[in-house]
Every structure is written in C-alpha cells, then in structure tokens.
Write a protein that binds this DNA or RNA. Sequence first.
DNA 1: TGTACATCAGTGAACGCGCGTTCACTGATGTAC
DNA 2: TGTACATCAGTGAACGCGCGTTCACTGATGTAC
Lengths: 182, 182
Amino acid sequence: MPYPTEHKPKTHARIVRAASRLFRRRGFARTGVDRLMADAGLTRGGFYAHFADKSRLLVEALEQAFDESRDNLLARGLEHLRGTDWVRAAGRRYLTSEHARAPADGCPIPSLGAEVSRAPRSVRVAFEKRLLEIADGMRRRLGDRNRRRALRLLASWTGAMLLARAVADPALSEEILSAARD
Amino acid sequence: MPYPTEHKPKTHARIVRAASRLFRRRGFARTGVDRLMADAGLTRGGFYAHFADKSRLLVEALEQAFDESRDNLLARGLEHLRGTDWVRAAGRRYLTSEHARAPADGCPIPSLGAEVSRAPRSVRVAFEKRLLEIADGMRRRLGDRNRRRALRLLASWTGAMLLARAVADPALSEEILSAARD
DNA sequence: TGTACATCAGTGAACGCGCGTTCACTGATGTAC
DNA sequence: TGTACATCAGTGAACGCGCGTTCACTGATGTAC
C-alpha cells in the first residue's frame, strides 16, 4: 500500500477543520474551494478526492463545528451543574463578547443558520441531527421531561449572538448579550 | 425636463423592493445584480445610475424590509395592546410557520443577520439604527424604562425563526416556534 | 541492502459560467418655437 | 398643431476575476524480490 492507512483520513480532517473555521468566519457562499484547500495546505484539485461536492463538505464542517462548540461552550467544566445553575453558567459562557468577536471558533448556528436554511436537504438533515443532540443534552441537564425549554434557551442564545454580531456599536453588542444573560 | 420628476424615484423604489425580497429569500451573496434588475423589469447596466455599489443597495433593502416587517408583524392591528398582552399577540404573529416558510416577506434579522455581521460598517450602522427603532417601539409597548426586555424578546423570536428555518423536519420547526411562543 | 514496481493522494491546467462594475450608446420624454 | 431639440434613464457589450468541477498527470510511498 502506497501510503499509511491513516494518511488520507488525516488530510480529510485537516480540510474539514479549515473549512469549518472559514465557513463560520466568512460564510459558506463566500468561501471558495481554492481558499479553503490553501488553508489546509493543499491545492484545488485534490478536493474531489475527499468530497462529492462543496455542500457535502458543509455537512462535515457543520458536524465539526457542533462538536467543538458543544465541548467548548456547554459541557467542559460544567459537568457538575444542573437545572438553573447550569443554565446560568452555560449562558454566561455562550453569551460573551469574545464569542461574538470570534465566529470562526464559535457556535455554527448564528453564523451559518441562514445559509443552512437555503442549503440542500442533506445539509438541513445533518444540522437538525446535531441540534437535537445538543437540545437533548440540555434537556437532561435541566431535568426536564420534554425539550421545549431547551429549544427556547437555544433560540434566545443564538438569536442574541446573531444580533450582537450584526450591530455596529460594541457597547450595544454587549448590552444585547448582557440582557440575554439574565 | 425629459422625464417626470417622480419617474426615477419610482424605479429606484422598484429595484429596492425586488432586492429586498430576493436578498431575504436567497441571501445577499447569492443574489446577482443581473437577477435583481431583471426582477425589477430592468437590465444590468442601469443599476449604477441608482446605487454606488451592491452593498449600498443592501442598506436600502434592509431599511425596506425592516419597515415592512415592523408594520406586518408587530404593529398593524395590535395598536390597542400593552404589556404582556402585546407580547403574546406580537409573538403569536411573528412565530408562525407561514412566516418561517416565506422569508422573502418576513423579518430581515434571521435571513440576513449573519451576512450583515460580515458586511461593511455602513450596512451594520443602518441595521443597528432600524433595530433600535424597533426595540424602542417594543419598549414603549411594554411600558419599560430601559430596552433590555425588548432586546431579550427580539433575540428569542429571531433565534427561534432562524432555527425553525434551518431544520429539515416541519414538525420540529413548528415545535421550535411553539416553544418560543410561550 | 538495493532496485524495480504498483498504488493512489495530490497537482495544476482547463472547462464554462456568473459575478460586480464600466461605459459608449440609444431612445423616450417634455419643452421651445 | 407640428417639428427640432436637449436631457438623461436605461441598454447591452465588454472588462477582469473567482467560482465549482473535471481530468490527465506527477511523484511520494510501501512492497516484492
């Protein structure tokens, strides 16, 4: 065999990581295959040995982003908390201006939600799956029977992040996040 | 004078209305000047007699969309309501699956918020201005001293709409909207 | 140990296309006489 | 009333560019002998 078995999967993961950051930072439509392959240290042509097309990469980039941001924002260091305590702590972690200023490393919902809603069904299915996993994780932390409260929290947090980023004045941005933290 | 005074402003408004709908439906980046001029019944070349560039049109399209959706979703028919009554009624009007299915005629925040956050400062300034007008209108209806509660409501509603549209399953979409209506 | 070989991950030129923007022009219009 | 004219809103060809995708190829690798 010409290359070690783990070689190709490693390259694949490198592309997905680069794309996931770029998509969140610059948007899916405005991120070209050329640019994202260069960021992964490769050239244009190799792309189609790894992905059927660009929207298939979006699926994997979304999964990558959801996994990352669940760990960073909702779980790590908060394992011992439950109920309202957990909501407060997770909200304080999600609703920061650092998060607002660094979309590349943040939650994919405010940065890519609208583009997902216009993407092929396969993309929306993948988005939905990860979203429900997170909602269910939250439901368990909250000790709820159904996921309505989790969905409501998710909507408030992601909506606040969307607004905080779209606005021009940093003070207003902070005001929006702070209002949502309560 | 070669044309009636109102001729050019009317054409201008026609372009803005067409663009405003197209941007919300298909996204700003994916809507070409060609297509939007055709929708307004004109051709490519005339565009720059009306707008300095495409992002200037985004500013006007956003203003158009905010004005429309404030009237449609938050004000008309709800003039007599105040406080919690108003919140319930406005929420029930905003958080519908009709609204989720028709982004072209809906609130510009879930459909264009992320692209606004990546747009030139001039766009974010215009977005912020209209957002604050709406937040202040809400604050008055709520009888609040400051706008924190209005911003929190805005975040929940727009976040719920963003999620409801990004998801693949219509039943889940409705569940998200219904959870946010409470 | 050294060499010939088969594999296949990745290269880079090329495809047709649509993008935002410019510009010389056309032709519909209201006005002057 | 009819005609010549000046204005300027809108036309459409052209610009250079980057897009997503294809494909004949190159060259790094592990294996066989």
